Computed example of a mutant assay.
Amino acid sequence: MINNEAILASARKTILSESESIAALTQYLDEDFAKSVQTIYNAKGRLVITGIGKSALIAAKIVATLNSTGTPSVFLHAAEAIHGDLGMLQPDDVAICLSKSGNSPEIKILVPLLKRFGNALIGITANKNSFLGKQSDFVLHAYVSQEADPLNLAPTNSTTAQLVLGDALAVCLMEMRNFTSEDFAKYHPGGALGKKLLLRVGDMLDGTHKPMVAPDSSIKTAIVEISEKRLGVTAVVENNKVTGIITDGDIRRMLNDRDNIAGVTAADVMTRNPKTITTASMVSEALNTMENYAITQLVVADDGEYKGILHLHDILKEGIV
């Protein structure tokens, strides 16, 4: 039975092997890489990326990265391409083909088909002298001296090298397009960053839980309203205009200060001029306000007109923090 130290030693060896292979890629970068980036950037069509076996899995990941960073891309499985899927390649598209050896039977069949319409072909291969390397317009040299596994057989370092070159393409293209965090958010509206940059207060306001009392309401009415709406707060509203706010803390301080609460109204207890935010404001702005003032609720009002309460928990539930 292998002990824990042996397991950790093997893991460290694998990680170091892959990191060294990746670092070595820098010496293989040449004008073909730069020309590849320029060709993709200037293309009127999409980027079609293909591969077979493990390289196909890496190709799919590169497609996902490029799509999310502003370069329209599609995945074409090399085996399916020769059975009808080649139709997705259009005249203005650029093709990228991934293959460690560059000589697999599927690649030898596919490459001439990719080139027959005059599409630019970028090869990502460990063997520049392979069939793929010689047929490509540009070659990204994904050479690794060995794989990480002890048999030097399992695609490990080689697939990592392909992935890293794909990432390098994506980042270069992002920089050429001046791709911003706002652009990234547009492609990730469901993610935390997308929500933080795109979600507005009005988008997440719950109109069914809109605690409010009149200024002359009894303090008991205010306590009931706070309890029923479960937001730890109620707005004090007159003619649908916010005049103040009462929190759980205000109630506790009142009870500490008064032995008799008969006749006490909401106006007697409320905090005037509470912090507010509009429905059109970004949720990120609301979060910043809460953090700056160490509060967990914000009154939402447009031109003084009461719209509801935004609670920190609402923001947390969206995964924005």
Rank of each mutant, 00 (worst) to 15 (best):
T271H: 08
P211K: 02
D203I: 01
N273Q: 13
G202D: 03
L163M: 15
P72T: 07
K115I: 12
N178F: 04
L76E: 01
F117N: 15
T65N: 11
A11S: 11
G70W: 12
N178M: 08
I7V: 15
Q38R: 14
T180S: 15
A148M: 01
G191K: 03
R253G: 09
L205I: 13
L197P: 02
A142G: 03
L165W: 06
L173R: 12
F33Q: 03
A168D: 01
T160K: 01
I49K: 08
D248T: 08
V299Q: 08
T289R: 11
T14H: 04
S217C: 10
G166D: 09
D250Q: 09
S36N: 03
A142I: 02
A6C: 12
L163N: 02
A9I: 04
L57T: 09
I251P: 00
N103L: 03
N240A: 10
A142N: 08
G232L: 08
A294S: 15
T271M: 07
D92Q: 14
Q162I: 06
F75W: 04
G207P: 08
T156G: 02
G194K: 05
P112F: 11
I107G: 03
T156A: 06
H209P: 00
V299K: 07
K196Y: 13
G51T: 08
L193P: 13
G84K: 13
G102K: 08
A43R: 10
S36P: 00
L66S: 09
I7W: 09
